[in-house]
């Protein structure tokens, strides 16, 4: 136990309700069989172009997971000097334990809203990681098992606000993450956005959630937390032996 000697008790994440995979209440340090609520380290990358609201999406998702759900979250970002049009990404690490290394290493979930982003970041996905793309903007998916929804089209046609693309995608993410709760997302949205654009965004969030539920199947299954960690350590050590 590296034990960050901070006096905060690890926040206990609340149970995801309706869509919890095995329907069981997470009860802190359960039986170690990973019931979908205790997270060792879950890594998410949201990516696309500057102007698509990627950083806002990262902040909203992180805020919902950190405050609404009580997870430890670090959200980092990478951006070019351009305010619009350059590559943009927000990375999140989510865990029930305090997070040491704040950046992502191997992604559990990659959301790509541009062709370039999908191509550049696909190689960072873990073997069983999930890829969620914009069906229209990513014409050539780097994976045949990608989850795809036309976020931009949905935002334009069903919400009437093209700028809400990021929030439609956020709705889909809220559905796909087995440990996320849509109510907490709504609350995060309401607290962060100016009142006059709030309704449209709530609509976008709900739309993304419903579309994902209808068309993307079951939420993502979580990796077994314990095993992953040890494997990572072993992987690193093997690397040393071969390199030296």
């Amino acid at each position: 136990m590296t034990g960050a000697p901070k006096d905060k008790a690890p926040a206990k994440p609340k149970s995801a309700t309706a869509k919890a995979v095995n329907g069981k209440m997470a009860n802190g340090n359960g039986n170690g069989n990973g019931n979908g609520q205790t997270l060792a380290r879950y890594e998410i990358r949201l990516s696309g172009l500057g102007g698509q609201g990627i950083l806002t999406m990262g902040k909203l998702l992180g805020q919902a997971l950190a405050i609404g759900h009580g997870y430890y979250v670090t959200q980092t970002q990478s951006y070019g000097p351009e305010a619009r049009g350059g590559a943009s990404r927000a990375d999140l690490v989510v865990s029930s334990e305090p997070i040491s290394y704040p950046k992502t290493e191997y992604l559990d979930l990659l959301v790509a809203l541009s062709q370039e982003a999908a191509a550049s970041y696909y190689s960072y996905l873990k073997p069983r990681g999930a890829l969620l793309i914009d069906a229209d903007l990513v014409r050539q998916s780097p994976s045949s098992v990608a989850l795809a929804l036309p976020f931009t089209r949905l935002a334009r046609e069903k919400v009437g606000v093209p700028q809400a693309t990021n929030v439609v995608a956020l709705g889909a993410v809220a559905y796909l993450l087995p440990f996320a709760r849509i109510e907490a997302m709504r609350k995060s949205l309401k607290e962060s956005l100016p009142e006059k654009i709030c309704d449209a965004n709530i609509k976008a969030l709900n739309l993304g959630y419903q579309e994902a539920k209808k068309r993307l199947g079951e939420p993502i299954a979580l990796p077994d937390p314990g095993e992953d960690d040890v494997q990572a350590a072993r992987m690193d050590l093997t690397e040393i032996m071969t390199e030296d």
């Binding site: 990262g58 670090t74 959200q75």
Partner: peptide, 9 residues
């Protein structure tokens, strides 16, 4: 830059 631009609770 990382500490300054990381969001945490």
């Amino acid at each position: 830059e990382i500490t300054a631009h990381t969001r945490e609770k």
